[in-house]
C-alpha cells in the first residue's frame, strides 16, 4: 500500500467554491408562517365584520374571544414548550379538570383565594412531576405516560367531585370575574394570559432553559453528548406544562365560578393543533410562542364566528380540521422551496 497516501493539498484556506445562496437560514423575527396566520386571522375578522357587523366588533364580543382564548392559550404555551423539547403532553385537559376540582372542594375553599390558587398550581405541578419522572427517568415514551395521566387524572377528578359541579363560595375568587375588576377594560384573566405569553417568549428565546429545550428537541443524542443534562431538561418541561395547566384551571374557576370534572375536555387536542398550525414541529426542535398564540386566536375566533352565525358545532369542527391541514400544507410548501 502506498505509505504516504493520502497525500493532499497545502493548508491554505479553502478558496471560495461556487457561491451558494441559502434562503431561509437566517432567523427572522417574524417568519412567513406567522404572517400567513395573521392573514387568516384578519380574514376571519373581515368575515365577522361583514356577517355580523354590530355584534362581532362589539367590545363585549372581543373581550369574550380573548377571555376564551386565555384559558386554552396558557395551556398551549406549556404544550408548545413540551413539543419543541421533543415530547408530547396529552394529559393537559385532564390536569386542568383535576386541578379545578381539587381547588374547589369545600375543604380547599376554607383556605380562601390563596389556598385555592396554591392548590390549583400544586396539583398541576404534581401531575407534571409524575409525567416528567415517568418520561425522563422511567422507561416510558411521552405519548404513553401522558395518555395514562389523561385517564387517571380525569378519573381522580370524577372521584373527588363525585360528578358534581362544585360552586365557588369565596367572594374574593368570584370578584376576579366581574366587571369591577377589569383593568383598563381588560379582564384579569386576559392579563394573566398576556403575562404567560411574554414570560414564555422570554424563557424560550432569552434563557439557557429555552436554548436547551430547542437543543434537546432538535437532537437529544447530540445534546447529551454536548454535556446537556437531557433528563433534567425533560423533567422540567413537563413540570412547566403542569404549571400552565394549574394556572389555566384557576382561570377556569374564576370564569365559571365553579370546578367540574368535565373541565378542559379535549384541551390536549386544541393545544397541540394550535401549536402545530403556529409552526411548531411535532418532531421537536423548532417552534415559537407567537405562532402558538396566533393559532389559539384563530381557533377561538372561528368558534366565536360560528356561534354568532348560529352554525352547528359539527361544521365548526370540520372547519378546524381543514385549517390544520391547510396550515401544515403551507408550511411544507415554504420549507421545501
Amino acid at each position: 500500500m502506498n505509505a504516504d497516501a493520502p497525500t493532499t493539498v497545502a493548508s491554505t484556506p479553502t478558496p471560495p467554491q461556487a457561491k451558494k445562496e441559502h434562503t431561509g437560514s437566517r432567523r427572522m423575527p417574524f417568519d412567513v408562517r406567522q404572517l400567513s396566520l395573521v392573514g387568516v386571522l384578519l380574514a376571519l375578522v373581515v368575515v365577522g365584520a361583514l356577517t355580523k357587523p354590530d355584534e362581532f366588533l362589539a367590545g363585549e364580543n372581543l373581550r369574550l374571544i380573548l377571555t376564551q382564548a386565555s384559558v386554552i392559550g396558557v395551556v398551549t404555551v406549556g404544550v408548545t414548550f413540551v413539543i419543541i423539547g421533543g415530547g408530547i403532553d396529552l394529559s393537559v385537559g385532564a390536569i386542568v379538570a383535576l386541578a379545578s376540582v381539587w381547588a374547589t372542594t369545600v375543604a380547599t375553599q376554607d383556605f380562601g383565594l390563596t389556598g385555592m390558587l396554591l392548590c390549583s398550581l400544586l396539583v398541576g405541578l404534581g401531575c407534571g412531576l409524575v409525567n416528567g419522572l415517568l418520561i425522563a427517568y422511567g422507561p416510558m415514551v411521552p405519548f404513553i405516560a401522558t395518555l395514562a395521566m389523561l385517564a387517571s387524572a380525569r378519573g381522580l377528578a370524577l372521584q373527588i367531585s363525585d360528578g358534581n359541579t362544585q360552586v365557588v363560595q369565596v367572594d374574593a375568587v368570584l370578584d376576579l370575574g366581574i366587571k369591577d375588576s377589569y383593568v383598563l377594560g381588560i379582564p384579569p384573566i386576559v392579563l394573566v394570559f398576556a403575562l404567560v405569553c411574554v414570560v414564555g417568549w422570554l424563557v424560550l428565546n432569552r434563557t439557557t432553559f429555552g436554548r436547551r429545550t430547542v437543543a434537546v428537541g432538535g437532537n437529544a443524542e447530540a445534546s447529551r453528548l454536548a454535556g446537556i443534562a437531557v433528563k433534567r431538561q425533560r423533567l422540567l418541561l413537563y413540570l412547566l406544562s403542569g404549571l400552565c395547566c394549574g394556572i389555566a384551571a384557576f382561570m377556569l374557576i374564576i370564569l365559571t365560578g365553579s370546578g367540574q370534572n368535565t373541565n378542559g375536555n379535549l384541551y390536549e387536542l386544541d393545544a397541540i393543533a394550535a401549536a402545530i398550525i403556529g409552526g411548531t414541529l411535532l418532531s421537536g426542535g423548532r417552534g415559537t410562542i407567537l405562532g402558538s398564540v396566533l393559532g389559539v386566536l384563530v381557533f377561538t375566533t372561528i368558534t366565536n364566528l360560528f356561534a354568532l352565525n348560529n352554525l352547528q358545532t359539527d361544521i365548526q369542527q370540520i372547519a378546524k380540521g381543514a385549517i390544520i391541514v391547510a396550515a401544515v400544507l403551507v408550511q411544507k410548501g415554504r420549507s421545501t422551496s
Binding site: 437543543a215 437532537n219 447530540a222
Partner: peptide
C-alpha cells in the same frame, strides 16, 4: 446524528456546551 443540531446556526452549535 451525534454532534450537531442540524436546524440551528453554527453559533448555537458552538455555544451549546458553554451556555451557562
Amino acid at each position: 446524528s451525534q454532534a450537531l443540531l442540524m436546524l440551528e446556526s453554527v453559533t448555537r452549535n458552538v455555544s451549546v456546551s458553554s451556555l451557562s
